[in-house]
Design a protein around this nucleic acid. Sequence first.
DNA 1: GAGTTTGAAACT
DNA 2: CAGTTTCAAACTC
Length: 751
Amino acid sequence: MKCGMLKGTCERASSSMEMETPDRTKAASSSAPISKFEDSPVFNYINNLSPIKPVKSIHIAQTLGSLSFASLHTIFTSPQSSSLKESRFHRRYQNLDLSKLKSPSRDFERENPNGRAEAVIPENFGARISIASTTVEQLSEHNEFAFELPHTLDYGSGSPDSSTNQDMSHQRVQNFDQQAEPDLGNRQTGPGREWPNLVPDTADLLIFSSPNDGEAFQGIIQRSPGLETGLDASISSSLLQNNVAGLQKMQLLSQVASGCNPEMGDASEGIEIKHTEEDLRRQDLETMGSFPCGGLNNEAELYDPFAEIKTLSNFQLGMRRRCLDFEMVGAHYHKSLPDSSNASSLSHPEGMIASTNLMLTSVNNKRGGESSMCILPGIGLHLNSLASTKNYYNATTHDGSFSETRSAMSCKELLPQSVIPNASDKEADESGNGFLEDNLLALVLPEEPNPNSPRKKRRKTEHAGEDDGCKRCNCKKSKCLKLYCECFAAGVYCVEPCACQGCFNKPIHEDTVLATRRQIESRNPLAFAPKVIRAPDSVTEIGDESMKTPASARHKRGCNCKKSSCLKKYCECYQAGVGCSINCQCEGCKNKFGTKDGSVPVAAADCEAEDEEAEKCAKTGLHSTTPSRLSRSLSQMAVPLPPKSKPPRSAFLTTVGGTYALNATQKQGKAEFLLPLSPKFEKPPLFNAEDEMPEILRGSTTPNADIKTASPNRKRVSPPHGELDSSPSLRSSRRLILQSIPSFPSLTPQH
DNA sequence: GAGTTTGAAACT
DNA sequence: CAGTTTCAAACTC
């Protein structure tokens, strides 16, 4: 049914839109492209290698609608998903009121509802949402196509009737990640848009100039039919489905955030979404159960906040913490909501609208100047919003207004919050609400006043040893416009909690921030990329030298420690919880996670991490096993956490690396498409994998390549023709990497 | 909380 | 590219 509906939508879109290459359109509808990919060695390799399935799987996911938390996290991290294109820079929601309202502990749950910002819901919002849902698959697929078949993406100028911008479509296909942002910008400019202020510098930031976002979507939609064809094949893998579902959600969120094409929306689409939601939630639980950590029951695992924390820390991007705030809030809010549990109308357009509005509101706040909304580009928030549309919808409908999430939450708090999703899952079973819903709510809804909530306690427990509040930057001379500033480095605006002086890293100085960011990127294209990447344990084919090192994850550039012996957080490797690698220039390396000479086995690090987790569990009284399980399973995919329970600040950044790891390892079956491309990479849809690719992931060809050496121009090399192409395995690995590129938003305008 | 240490980032 | 300086986090007291 969904497929049919979706297909119908696609067909409509196609019919309305004229393609220069009709054949292509047909192919898309007939799934010929998919088969083509399947036939390719890379595809086969990927399929055999890991749970990650070909693009077609995405379709399935959409249909089946399974949700994977892990995937969600990953997704969230990506800037694209945020689609908060405006500045591309993550903005924190700075609400003085909120901070005031907050308890000393900064628990958002207690945040005063009054602090909420009301979001205006556009009339056609529902339509937009539905559209987004329908296009999710398509987008993901397109994204992959961009990598696989960059040349074939050209679209003829579309017919005006379709209201689709051919150019937009084309570009979208190539740069899916970027799509969201441009869309937002466009929408903002459009009448009745909710984000008038979101994109100040559209010229620089926006890749697409199309006046109508919907057009772009249509372009994507045209291909959707083909995408659907592959669904049947991939249905078999539940894991894959989960991944796909996560991806889809992410995409949906992105699109929603960006403002789906109102024209596209229709009731059928809304239905589709609903189904997907349910399926996803159900499957999520299943997926959790499937985690390798045996022994524990799913619920326990889901419940365990620690597990989530670890997961987040590992997978979350540097931007993550902002997102976490939202999620947490959402969770609490969820509880507070009277009907949230029963919200059945995921399909309800309003629900979608609400989520969208939330995002929008947050964005507006940002633009407003001091709003510190944590909406991170591409961060899971959006995704969560979609997923949690039900609850969210209910909540919003009750109040009729949306409250923005406060970013004032401490980073520490955020981490635990991030855990919420899993807990939510469990709750989902119990109450019927998905954790995603919670997350979504977090974004939009105010904190739950209930101080007694288990989650809150959990968080406190976890963070007991940590600082009371989120440690933000404390820059004094850098004006928060240099990489010294963690906020800036993470691609987020400084917020109230920051103790920075003369801070320019605020929405009001967006231009300055962007300009500075561009400058830095020009100097080092990967300056904002994840610093830590996880070596693909499962993907031995890659055969990277880094694999020789004990730790599964590695710092991209390696550390240069001289006195800390890589045993303190001064060491980025240690801070990220990864072992040193051959790339490190450290002296007397004693990194517990693995020395550069490989003296420390990975197992040791893992054991430590597990021990820590166990301790945490014991303290919290939560399912001790759950955390371990989850983290353990996750650890395989992600970088292990540092000895201290407290996630390293940099860890957030490193989490991005975790994203890489996921993609690279594919253990989670996360499709490549799950990770939106980093804006940096947006320019070159097919940037040279080697340049951007983490060393670990790279072939042995360039183990020690210095990031700085990479030239932006080199990025544009198309993968298929590279030297590495000769090896199917290499090719496949490259693809994964490309798609898994870090999500930090690139300020550099694409051309 | 102030001061020190450390290593990344930035600069020359 | 190497050396130096600047910077802010991490750490110590």
